[in-house]
Amino acid sequence: MGIVYRSRKKIGPLVLNFTENGYSSWSLKIGRWSWNSKTRAHRVDLPGPLSWKQDKSRR
């Protein structure tokens, strides 16, 4: 297993994600709900270590 560089920059509810190759994706997080531009998935944080995720169907 190799070492992977990952970084996040938060600007209010907007989160920019970076890898060793540069910009990767952006996310929007409002309260317990979040959406990621790369996976196009909705996620809701649940109590404890749980979360609920809904992927956007791809055609």
Rank of each mutant, 00 (worst) to 15 (best):
K38P: 00
K10G: 00
I11S: 11
V4H: 13
K38Y: 10
K53D: 00
N21T: 12
S24E: 12
A41M: 09
N36W: 02
M1R: 15
R58Q: 06
S37H: 14
D55M: 08
I11H: 12
I11F: 07
R6H: 12
D55H: 10
S25A: 12
P47K: 10
P13F: 03
L46N: 07
P13D: 00
G31P: 04
K53S: 00
I30N: 14
D45S: 11
R8K: 11
V44N: 04
N17F: 03
L50M: 03
N21Q: 14
W33H: 15
W26R: 13
P47S: 05
A41S: 15
S57V: 09
F18S: 03
K38D: 05
K29L: 06
S34V: 04
Y5E: 08
R32T: 13
R40Q: 13
S51E: 00
T19R: 15
G12C: 01
N17I: 02
S37C: 07
R40A: 09
I3F: 09
K56Q: 06
A41T: 07
F18D: 00
Y5T: 03
W33A: 13
D55C: 03
L46E: 07
Y23L: 13
S7G: 14
P13L: 01
N17M: 06
L46A: 07
W35N: 03
E20Y: 13
N21E: 07
W35I: 05
G48V: 02
F18C: 05
M1N: 12
P49D: 03
P47Q: 05
M1I: 11
R59W: 04
R8L: 02
P49F: 02
P49E: 02
K56T: 04
K53Y: 01
Y23F: 15
R43G: 01
I11E: 06
K10H: 06
W33F: 15
Y5I: 03
S7N: 12
R58Y: 06
K29Q: 14
Q54S: 01
G2I: 02
K56D: 02
P13R: 05
L50H: 09
S7E: 05
G31V: 14
W35E: 01
S24I: 01
K56P: 00
S27A: 15
Y5C: 03
G2Q: 11
R6P: 01
R43S: 06
G31K: 13
H42G: 02
K53W: 00
R40F: 07
P47E: 03
W33I: 15
K29D: 02
P13K: 04
D45V: 06
S25N: 13
T39S: 15
K29A: 12
R43K: 13
R59C: 08
K9N: 04
W35Y: 15
L16M: 12
V44C: 04
Q54V: 02
L14F: 10
S51L: 00
A41K: 03
L46F: 10
N36R: 08
E20H: 15
I30C: 13
K56I: 00
T19S: 11
G22Q: 06
M1Y: 10
